[in-house]
């Protein structure tokens, strides 16, 4: 296992001095593993905590509790994460806001090489950056340009080049194609797949878009209100979804087809306020099959079949 995450919890505490103390339970006991060369899709709606999981795993956000093991090493309480940053990287949803607008591409992509001592001169750095740009489908001439001279898709390619510069083993992809047009989204998804095959990268692919996740993931984890509700191979999640929430999400997906119409069966209600999640199963107020037990008792994530985990009393 490249990455093991155990009982990850992240609470944000706000107020407390003059205002009422409020605890936002963004992530509440999430566990999963990730293998070398594997993509785990992490699906959820807004406020599900999926992005917080991604950032906590990289310790860009400090976990409240839980353990993160990277290559069998507990990194949860390492003081200086900087040497490890070489091994684990992130690509954000909006490439523009994740790049210093006053840096040239040579610096944006080249900084990881310099920080981790992978190049010894400026010339060597520029040569490596040129190779990286070419690999992600940009021109070598783009070296001295600035981020806003590029289109959204090109910028995301630059962000990918930056993430790959230090040759990491693990990359968190946080909605990397959500801000892009469909035609460009397909280009980026292709690129990510081929880079994975070539370098044996492990991806944590965070997205709200089930169809995208379907096309890039080996396994899929579904999050709802800070908790994992289902985790299985991509075939099982899309072929035999077990959790009512996963079912509801799948029914909400719209496909362009001549017979298409507005979805018939839709999940009622909206995701809960993470400051006051419902008692019992957090999904019960929206669940078509919830009963007394669901309202009282929180379901555990159980392995129903080998490799297929579900947190539901009714399964």
């Amino acid at each position: 296992m490249l990455l093991v995450v155990k009982d990850l919890v992240k609470h944000y505490v706000s107020g407390g001095f003059l205002s009422k103390k409020e605890v936002v339970r963004a992530v509440e006991g999430v566990s999963f593993t990730l293998d070398r060369g594997e993509t785990l899709g992490l699906v959820g709606e807004s406020g599900s905590g999926k992005t917080t999981v991604g950032k906590t795993v990289l310790r860009l956000v400090e976990p409240t509790s839980g353990r993160i093991l990277f290559e069998d090493r507990d990194i949860t309480s390492i003081r200086d994460m900087r040497p490890l940053r070489k091994e684990m990287q992130i690509v954000y949803q909006d490439p523009m806001s994740s790049m210093n607008p006053r840096m040239r591409i040579a610096d944006i992509v080249g900084r990881p090489l310099q920080i981790h001592g992978l190049v010894s001169s400026r010339r060597e750095r520029d040569d490596r950056v040129r190779e990286l740009l070419e690999r992600v489908g940009l021109s070598r001439e783009h070296l001295y340009r600035y981020p806003h001279e590029f289109s959204g898709g090109q910028r995301q390619r630059i962000a990918i080049a930056r993430a790959l510069a230090s040759e990491p083993k693990f990359v968190v992809l946080d909605e990397p194609t959500s801000a892009l047009d469909v035609s460009v989204q397909a280009q980026i998804l292709r690129l990510l797949k081929s880079l994975q095959e070539e370098r044996g990268l492990a991806y944590l692919f965070i997205s709200h878009d089930l169809a995208v996740v379907r096309n890039i993931s080996h396994r899929v984890a579904v999050m709802y209100a800070g908790k994992l509700v289902e985790l299985a191979s991509v075939e099982e999640i899309f072929g035999e979804p077990l959790h009512p929430y996963t079912n509801g999400l799948l029914a909400s997906v719209l496909e362009p087809s001549p017979e298409a119409s507005a979805p018939e069966e839709v999940l009622p209600g909206e995701p809960p306020d993470p400051r006051k999640p419902p008692r019992g199963c957090r999904f019960h107020p929206r669940c078509p099959i919830a009963d007394e037990r669901c309202r009282e008792e929180e379901p555990e994530l159980r392995e129903i079949r080998p490799g297929h985990w579900v947190a539901c009393h009714k399964v």
Partner: peptide, 22 residues
């Protein structure tokens, strides 16, 4: 609070470097 500051942390920039460069 800009994302590029977090991104700088993610590539391993030191605090001093984040302050001066970003």
């Amino acid at each position: 609070e800009m994302e590029y500051v977090e991104a700088a942390k993610a590539i391993g920039e030191s605090n001093a470097s984040i302050f001066v460069r970003y």
